[in-house]
Amino acid sequence: MLGYIIRRLLQVIPVLWLVATSTFFLMHAAPGGPFDSERQISAEIQANINARYHLDEPLGKQYLRYLQMLASGDLGPSFRYADRSVNEIIATTFPVSAMVGLIGLFFALSIGLSTGIFAASKLNSWRDYSAMLLALLGISLPSFVVGPLMILLFSIKLGWFSVSGYNRLQDLLLPGLTMGIMYAAFFARLTRGGISEIIRQDFIRTAKAKGLSNTVIMLRHTLKGGLLPATSFLGPAATAMLTGSLVVETIFNLPGLGRFFVQSALNRDYTLVMGCVLFLAVLIVIMNLLVDLAYAFLDPRVTYD
């Protein structure tokens, strides 16, 4: 098991190299550059800037220079935000996004799983239909609708939180909830689907024939297998939530990673884009590993060695 984990973690290295290479060439292939602007600047200044950031060198040389930098754990300077390194930007913005994401994850799992179990405990009944209708609503409503509604209710009407910005820790609650609601809807559907799949199996009939109560059958016999689909989704969902969302961070005006990520692509901030992508790649690999380990925990037939 430990050997498996180490091997999986070592796989990060080739994955990162592939991601770095493809992002590097894709970014440089995109038209425009980090220092293009409406304003005309003299050729001399342009040349100076290019020399400062090594943009005058041939692409291959820039690529090798970048890889060398990466190998030492340096993601380079941001092209856009002068005097700030990419490492620094990620280090300051990620905690905000991660906190929002953790809150979101908490809401997504608690609301999602309980709604899914509630719906599946009596399939094709009014409680199933109403829970799934709610889930459909949660999936359909975009966060730029839910977010402002939350602000309107909790911040403006009730005055519990700041309307905008990040001053106190509790200001992250509303963005977390906004983000969590959509994922909760996904988790609810996946949980219901997973459980309804298990509930049809022969061994549930055996459990009934043993005289077990419905609660025991649901919690002990159904849930482990029924949670597998939701578990698979947990990996990408957790990564997406922890790394922040442009929409949620814009609505609530938070200094999170999600905004910087999207902005950097628009700005052709080569190093910041690649830094964010690589950071995301590492997170995804780790999350997927955690999901695979959770799989082995839920289903004894899954083994790794």
Binding site: R205, A209, H221, G225
Partner: peptide, 14 residues
């Protein structure tokens, strides 16, 4: 009760 298919009548997760 003893069921027909022992492969599917026991819970694989427990």
């Amino acid at each position: 009760m003893i069921f027909q298919d022992p492969m599917t009548s026991l819970n694989p997760y427990l």
